[in-house]
Write a protein that binds this DNA or RNA. Structure first.
Length: 422
RNA sequence: GGAGAGAUACCCAAGCAGGUUGAAGGGGACGGUUUGCUAAACCGUUAGUAGGAGCAAUCCUAGCGAGGGUUCGAAUCCCUCUCUCUCCGCCA
């Protein structure tokens, strides 16, 4: 969430920032509630001070066997008054919090203004787009032809947007997970985490999925658990309500998890293939940094994700998202888009965001800049490194052969123990 | 699921028949004295945090797992919840 002091003192700045996301909001209710809250706080706190002082006097008198009934009577009234004001404050704070939790992050100055993806900026491209001497097939045809993707049985046992991987397909999925984790842990300096896939409500609020996007999440009963939509949620919340040592920073974590998304607003989109599933695998990168380092760390994180595509030999481009296309919590976001020959388009395969202190403030993740100094909020960052299902799909399409087989990218051969899938 | 025990400051731990105790005592850490140097001994310091008022010095409020309640006053009494540990049952 945004700093309440920023909203209070520089509301125009907040409104201007949100406009760069294509949003128009009014802060009038917030500002007047905030003002009222502080007035009532002054009142109740001075009453409490009086009560504290007088109650001690009561104790003193009773110890000396003196009468204190006049003081007690007075404090009964004071107590009633305090109760009323505190209840008013509680209601105001609940509303203030509700408002604050639904305001998205402000875009970084470098983020292009615009309401939708047409305002995104391509930053760079990598890789040679392969010229086919036959018509490249979509990955679902290739996968079904090879017997490694089973969409029918996926929908039989679960429903739409579920797929079964079989044989060499299942093994390829696992190889991709291992390859990516090995790359990030051995070469990029990330520590591997294997978190729970079910988290509590506080986590979902901490990273920004709640309260606004509950309909996109899978909720699990019994209990009040959510299936994680990304490893970002459990891994970022590892340090919720903690004060980190400055020497620990930056922290680099990588985690493989399954991810679960309701895809509530995506009816009819990407219904074929494995591009948009209710359950998919992903290797995630998460960083905690000092505020002054987050910009450089963000660029580095993007390069780490790009390295995966480069090693796999998959052509891609890097896109800087405009304000309107960024996620709720992000201050700046690069998407990596991989080339799909069958559709002749680049499709998102990684999203790398700098959240600055937005998530850290929600999740209360701080660090102490120097011994004895006041704690400050860290900056959090994360990015896919990469989405496994989409990577598998991209490999099938980019490495397909005329006979329906698929050549295994060089770097995966030791993991798979084969050069071709046929 | 059944039966117990517990949660107090950086750590351990007392207080729990309500009243100058936001908290004894240890340990640790930091500072000092002593010392050729270490160690030891001795002395001292050690809630952090959040919120609010004020130009400021500073002051106030909250806080003993969380949330409610009783009371003039709650770490202490009552209720609800969460987590941890032990035993039993079940289970990958």
């Amino acid at each position: 969430m945004l700093d309440i002091r920023l909203v209070r003192n520089e509301p125009e700045q907040v409104i201007a920032g949100l406009r760069r996301r294509g949003l128009t909001i009014s802060l009038d209710e917030f500002l007047s509630l905030d003002e009222t809250r502080r007035q009532k706080l002054v009142e109740t706190e001075s009453l409490k001070n009086r009560r504290n002082v007088v109650s001690k006097e009561v104790g003193r008198r009773k110890a000396h066997n003196e009468d204190a009934s006049d003081l007690i009577r007075e404090m009964q009234e004071v107590g009633e008054r305090i109760k009323v004001i505190d209840e008013e404050i509680r209601a105001i704070e609940a509303r203030l919090n509700e408002i604050l939790l639904t305001i998205p992050n402000l875009p970084d100055a470098s983020v292009p203004e615009g309401p939708d993806e047409t305002y995104n900026q391509e930053v760079r491209r990598w890789g040679e787009i392969r010229v086919f001497d036959f018509t490249p097939k979509p990955h679902w045809d290739i996968g079904e032809g090879l017997g490694i993707l089973d969409f029918e049985r996926g929908s039989k046992i679960s429903g739409a947007r579920f797929t079964v991987l079989k044989g060499k397909g299942a093994k390829l999925e696992r190889a991709l997970v291992n390859f990516m984790l090995d790359l990030h842990t051995k070469e990029h300096g990330y520590e591997e985490i294997f978190p729970p896939f079910l988290v509590n409500r506080d986590c979902m609020v901490g990273t920004g999925q709640l309260p606004k996007f509950e309909e996109d999440m899978f909720r699990v009963t019994p209990g009040d658990y959510f299936l994680i939509p990304t490893a970002e949620v459990p891994v970022t919340n590892l340090h919720r309500d903690e004060i980190l040592d400055v020497e620990q920073l930056p922290l680099y974590y990588t985690a493989y998890t399954a991810c679960f998304r309701a895809e509530a607003g995506a009816a009819g989109r990407d219904t074929r293939g494995v591009i948009r599933q209710h359950q998919f695998n992903k290797v995630e990168l998460v960083k905690f940094t000092k505020p002054e380092d987050s910009e450089a760390e963000h660029e580095k994180l993007v390069r780490n994700a790009e390295t995966v595509l480069q090693r796999l030999g998959l052509p891609y481009r890097v896109v800087l998202l405009c304000g309107g296309d960024m996620g709720f919590s992000a201050a700046k976001c690069y998407d990596l888009e991989v080339w799909f020959p069958s559709s002749g388009t680049y499709r998102e395969i990684s999203s790398c965001s700098n959240f600055k202190d937005f998530q850290a403030r929600r999740a209360n993740i701080r660090y102490r800049p120097a011994p004895g100094a006041k704690p400050e909020f860290v900056h959090t960052l994360n990015g896919s490194g990469l989405a496994i299902g989409r990577t598998l799909a991209a490999i099938l399409e980019n490495y397909q052969n005329a006979d329906g087989s698929v050549t295994v990218p060089e770097v995966l051969r030791e993991y798979l123990g084969m050069e071709r899938i046929d």
